[in-house]
């Protein structure tokens, strides 16, 4: 099932400590995590980062198996990046395959990229898994607030993000249904060369686009019918409040990040 294999953008309701954290804490935490991921270049550091991820997953009661399964749809990108890094990096040649040479530096670079991508994807999907989309947007909007003065449409951006997140599963379901319907008419999405396969996608992509636009239209109409006109003067149902657990979580994260940087 398409829908269930993609964990990015899904929310798994729960009542763990991580679920109850303020969305801003979690967003800043993930942001910090990503920055650190790209700062460090040694495996002890990545090990430390992995420990942070695994501990957070345990506290949030997210099964690791599910997180790993969520990698499947992006596996291709990971493999491609790792391979390219392995063969494109100049340096001391270890062995060569045809015109390509795998270098010591290339292998190192590839391993670094693999660690980064894996941790990046797992950790960001943990953010959406433990945060309701509405909280996520509220948090984003709040965090982008200061940039409004320089013309950043904070509310609109946040709203767009929520809607996009909200519709990922819907579109995946839709894609699966259309795919099955065309398969029932003899369409083949699996065989053929690259060009043939791309051509075979037309019966899937056209209806999918049509339905996405239709949904967008319906949604816009429904929002306008309820007098939505952007963030100006809009009041909030839920006010974000930082609590002691946010302070604690923040301290733990900062300690973890420092540890990853210095080991």
């Amino acid at each position: 099932m398409l829908r269930n294999s993609v964990t990015i953008g899904q929310y798994l309701p729960g009542n763990s400590l991580v679920h109850r954290l303020d969305p801003r804490t979690k967003i800043l935490g993930v942001l910090g995590y990503v920055v650190i991921l790209f700062l460090i270049r040694d495996f002890a550091g990545y090990g430390m980062m992995a420990v942070i991820t695994v501990l957070t997953a345990a506290v949030a009661r997210l099964p690791l198996k599910m997180l790993v399964r969520g990698l499947r749809p992006v596996l291709f990108i990971i493999v491609l990046t790792v391979t390219l890094n392995a063969v494109m990096t100049p340096g001391e040649l270890l062995w060569s395959v045809g015109p390509f040479g795998v270098t010591r530096e290339g292998l190192f670079q590839a391993a670094i990229m693999a660690c980064r991508l894996l941790l990046l994807i797992i950790t960001t999907s943990m953010l959406t898994l433990t945060t309701a989309p509405i909280d996520l947007t509220d948090g984003l909007e709040y965090l982008m607030g200061p940039f409004r003065r320089i013309g950043v449409p904070a509310h609109e951006l946040a709203m767009m993000m929520t809607i996009a997140l909200r519709f990922i599963p819907t579109l995946l379901d839709e894609a699966e249904r259309i795919m099955k319907a065309q398969m029932a008419r003899g369409a083949d999405f699996q065989s053929g060369g690259f060009i043939q396969r791309a051509k075979n996608m037309v019966p899937l992509l056209v209806p999918l686009f049509v339905s996405a636009f239709r949904r967008a239209d319906d949604l816009a109409l429904a929002m306008e019918a309820r007098c939505y006109r952007g963030g100006e003067g809009r009041s909030r149902f839920k006010i974000l409040k930082l609590g002691p657990s946010d302070l604690a979580a923040g301290l733990v994260m900062i300690t973890g990040f420092f540890a990853a940087l210095v080991v």
């Binding site: 249904r177 259309i178 099955k180 319907a181 019966p203 209806p207």
Partner: peptide, 22 residues
């Protein structure tokens, strides 16, 4: 097999071409 809301699976330029797809 005719799915629920089968009209969402139409994609060709003409009705003829869509029916001829199968």
């Amino acid at each position: 097999m005719v799915f629920q809301y089968p009209e969402h699976q139409l994609f060709e330029e003409t009705v003829w071409a869509d029916i001829a797809f199968g």
